[in-house]
Design a binder for these strands. Structure first.
Lengths: 232, 232
DNA sequence: ATTTATTGTCTCAGTTTGCGACAATAATAG
DNA sequence: CTATTATTGTCGCAAACTGAGACAATAAAT
């Protein structure tokens, strides 16, 4: 967080970072110091930085990960996003002068992205203004500030629409996974149960999964195959 | 076009305005005075204006139409969009001082939209800096400035992807149209021939078209039905 | 050795899709 | 007035795809 001329004015980004654990879809939410305000992880674009690079830079800081599956889905630009009181509250709670950071009190458009990551690879890390960065079940989110709830809703909607066009599900899993795990990811995203046989037939028919040896599963049933993403 | 503090800095929009005529998909392109530069119609967002409203305002100016089918599809934010020389050329060719309009020489992100309109309803109108605003066949575009060719390509790609999810084709036609005309629209968008019987069966199966009386067509064959969009 | 839970696969019926065929018909040509 | 031409609405059939249940296989637990 630096002073005014370092970032493009009026432009912010927010990222909806999806993870999958315990059969549930989750997203990363930060909480600002001493305010009780919850928000999506976001940031600003440096004067000589590509927009997409700015978002990847923020993702790296928040998750520790490079090379994340990332997709831009909408730019939010309504006037009623402009609530300088909220930003003033955050700055003051952090002991920052609202003069030095006056540029933050201006109107912002937000370019929204969603990211899909492997839950287990992540070490969620708060930024300078926040005291936590944590996973929340998608159906148990705290009240989010500004229009961030709307951003999450549109992210999920876009993710669902992309699910049958792009092969996206496996970005939420480790490199090797079972068919059952993959199906649970799809079910969590779509919010509905899928028929096991049909799902398996469809996934294998795409010829995008490589089948490996059997998994040694500590479970009381037949050991499933492991798959990885990639034809060869 | 007004002075600096009237618009949000760093933010522009561009619109890919699709029309359909003579079995071809076309888009509106403007040419800047005395420069030979071709570009998409675009504009800026007023300080207290919703982003979407700004785009509709621009569409109204360029086409004379309200209530246009409009969809945001991507925000372009690479650094190499920043080519102040191009904007300087345009300003000078129009006799504008680059001091008064210095804000135009800054870096811009562009939020891109596509619009679908009825070709026959439109009176294309140039803006203050351009001397023409005309239809061009999608496959015979002039060289477009900056990354506008890339914007057009992504617009078409998004339109194609949306074609099987949203019912979008009829926005390019008059209120009443024949099944053959509708099919030609789809073929122009997808860039491929479709089977007549299958197309008709699918469209009617959606139960979104109302069938009217026969058309008196001056053509030497059976007169087709007319349809309009809307169930009832 | 038996039970339990889950996996990989198959079959079958129902639906959708691609494609050709047929009669119907508005204008035109003879 | 009749035949021709071009295009339309519709049907039928085969191929492909989909949803759902059924069956044997098997790793761990009893």
């Amino acid at each position: 967080m630096t002073q005014a001329p370092y970032y493009l004015k009026h432009i912010a980004y927010d990222s909806v970072i999806f993870g999958f654990s315990g059969d549930k879809l989750k997203i990363l939410i930060i909480r600002y110091h001493n305010t009780g305000l919850y928000a999506l992880p976001g940031g600003f674009v440096e004067l000589h930085e590509n927009l997409n690079d700015a978002v990847r830079r923020g993702l790296k800081e928040r998750t520790g990960l490079d090379n994340i599956y990332l997709e831009q889905f909408y730019t939010f630009g309504d006037v009623d996003r402009y609530q300088p009181d909220v930003m003033r509250t955050i700055l003051e709670a952090n002991g920052h002068s609202t003069e030095t950071y006056a540029w933050l009190l201006d109107r912002f458009l937000s370019v929204a992205y969603y990211a899909l990551i492997n839950y287990n690879d992540v070490v969620p890390t708060p930024d300078a203004l926040s005291d936590s960065c944590d996973w929340y079940d998608l159906d148990q989110l705290p009240n989010l500030m500004l229009d961030h709830a709307e951003i999450v809703a549109k992210a999920l909607q876009t993710l669902r629409a992309n699910l049958d066009r792009k092969l996206v599900g496996m970005n939420l899993l480790p490199a090797r996974f079972t068919m059952g795990e993959l199906q649970k990811v799809y079910e969590a995203i779509l919010g509905e149960k899928l028929h096991r046989g049909t799902f398996q037939r469809k996934m294998l028919g795409l010829e995008l999964l490589k089948r490996h040896e059997k998994q040694y599963s500590g479970a009381a049933h037949k050991a499933p195959f492991l798959y990885s993403f990639g034809t060869e």
